[in-house]
Design a protein around this nucleic acid. Structure first.
Lengths: 125, 125
DNA sequence: CTTATATTTTCGAACATTCGCATATGCGAG
DNA sequence: CTCGCATATGCGAATGTTCGAAAATATAAG
């Protein structure tokens, strides 16, 4: 029954998609609502085209969706639970990071799990 | 506060580690208990050295641990919950696969979540 | 010591991803 | 139509990953 293998392959695609620090941060950014490309690029301090490229990957994998409003392309998570799922992954990071910097994890967990945190007052226009 | 970025990077490492179909299948194999390299290689139909290589990656990331018994290297998941976590990832695969083969997912979920399923009566003792 | 078995390590080639930069597209304003 | 802004796309270079085959290590047995 090689179907399991097919599922494992698809699943691996998802994991790979989330296997990039910037993409994780982008998902984290979108956790509290939709944002346009420029806003994400600015908050994350990344060149604009790269953000766009990452987003198109996430879009291809049906992790985010695009909505256009004028000339802005506004993205949002299709399934916000994916962010919760990522937070759960923190459990496995814990052990490794503890050696280096224990507080970082707790900070991250707090930032990612509290509902009313907002790092984006950066409405650029 | 670049700590979040550091955590995202570590987290990405974990995701990348699990972002490979064979490694997912290996974790799945180890879900029901420890196994030696040869047994995994046989069940998964993979060349022996590759299994070893994947295992060393997973070991480096503290996902599996090794125990030696005679000439066998027996591996087991350090945190079995990681397997549960992977199963949760299936939720995000669902939509994509549905088009191709809906049953595959259900099968996979069943195989991965039932506690006493065993697809490998081929105990190579 | 020699042989057989189990696993790991090494190495180069094939392949995939990420990056930065330049250019293209889409859209609204004038 | 032309300009300027927001985003996307294309492309080559740098970098990272996976692969198969060969060689190295370790352990047990004779």
């Amino acid at each position: 029954m090689p179907q399991r293998q097919a599922v494992a392959k698809e699943l691996a695609e998802i994991f790979k998609a989330v296997g990039h620090a910037d993409r994780i941060r982008m998902i984290e950014e979108l956790r509290h609502g939709e944002k346009d490309v420029n806003s994400i690029a600015q908050t994350l301090q990344l060149p604009n085209p790269r953000v766009s490229q990452h987003l198109s990957l996430l879009r291809a994998l049906r992790i985010v969706e695009e909505r256009r409003e004028g000339r802005r392309h506004i993205y949002h998570l299709i399934q916000p639970e994916i962010a919760d799922w990522i937070v759960q992954g923190l459990a496995f990071v814990e052990g490794r990071m503890r050696a280096l910097n224990a507080a970082a994890i707790d900070d991250a967990r707090r930032l990612w799990t509290t509902p009313s945190d907002d790092t984006s007052p950066a409405e650029t226009k």
